[in-house]
Design a protein around this nucleic acid. Sequence first.
RNA 1: CGGGGCGUGGCGCAGUCUGGUUAGCGCGCGUGUUUUGGGUACACGAGGCCGCCGGUUCGAAUCCGGCCGCCCCGACCA
Length: 438
Amino acid sequence: MRLSRSLLPTLKETPAEAQIVSHRLMLRAGLVRQTASGIYAWLPAGYRVLDNIARIVRAEQDAAGAQELLMPTIQSADLWRESGRYDGYGKEMLRIQDRHERELLYGPTNEEMITDLFRQSVHSYRALPQIVYHIQWKFRDEVRPRFGVMRGREFLMKDAYSFDIDHEGAVVSYRRMMLAYMRTFQRLGLRAIPMAADTGPIGGDLSHEFIILAPTGESQVFYDAAFEDIDYTSGDFDIRSPDDLARFYAQMTTPYAATDEKHDPERWAKIDPARRREGRGIEVGHIFYFGTKYSRPLNFTVTGAGGQKIHPEMGSYGIGVSRLVAAVIEASHDAAGIIWPDAIAPFRAAILNLKPGDAACDALSETLYARLGNDALYDDREERAGVKFADADLLGHPWQIIIGPRGAASGRVELKRRADGAREEVSLEAALAKILGA
RNA sequence: CGGGGCGUGGCGCAGUCUGGUUAGCGCGCGUGUUUUGGGUACACGAGGCCGCCGGUUCGAAUCCGGCCGCCCCGACCA
């Protein structure tokens, strides 16, 4: 994108409503704008990040064998009456009426709907197991939205649903999703810790939440360094192998990990002090196994091998995609602005033309822009160098290619790495190699 | 939902208590000069039914009533 023609409204001052650092930076960097309490528009740069995160989430879901589909945001109240949750869910659910006064709702989650879809079409044990997912906007009418997209009312969520013939199968699905989650978070550049959790309104008896570490996180977390020693993306665990998943699951659930509410100082004290890790965390995912909680009331059965009717065992698995944008910023920023991990940055590099109008600067900048294309944000504005530096730092591009009249005359540019501030003067080709190779 | 607060050019704010010139300031925006590697400086300029509706008054951003929106603390939550 050419910055001079972009909807990328950076702010020098922080809007009064923003309290936490991710909210402030998202507004200042022109990523989002609030349109109503807890509801945000995603501007081009913010939407790129959202989309990059969704792409990684999608890739890992696909790799785990989950099928992507897309369910509607508006649901009929009837289905929720069948499961008994229509009244149970409370004021958090946004209820609406159409012109015929039929009762509808903006979905906060999709267990009922996916179960309905399965009961319409899946009738034999031979069609199971299956896992399906979608990445879709949800609405929960929070009493008090706050912290920007961290706790908005409308949010983008990846939710997956597993259907198995029996408990053993459901456990394998559960572990499979857990591994997919650890891989996803690692690819996003985050350290995530799975922690045993309460099941809340989704229900069920087995649940983990995924906490990512960020200095400004909402809760205190304690965990064993064992979690840091594992490379989840390595070939160490075959996500298709139940045995590998069992081994993986043991590694996830044996070492100590707890949020402050569940912290057990006695157990904690027994851990080798060198292996104790403590920090702040933000919940970015939650997985549940809940058996037949929905298949029974919605009367979803398949025929088993012996001709008997079986209520499939289900689980559901959520990742807060829009929340992750804020969570990553909480985990990765400094006084000047955001520091995007390479994998999700809105632009891989910013091209800072310090002197538009200077023939050498323009030529170098245009060449770089042509080579990097959509991966680059070309700052071609007639602005002071300082303004461009400040905006580039704020936006947090992993790389900045700084083109000034001094170096440009001899075909050299300065390459700056946002994460550590390292700079070097290199040729255009060397800069490209470094950026594209990273 | 309980408690508190705020709504004044795009953003951040002053003015409101103690009604009364043309409603200010900083940033941003436009033009010009300047500057030319870390939010430069100067000049000129554009931009506001002071959240909305009603009331009191000779006169309302300012007082009164109602409504709407937003934020903060608490309880609740991906």
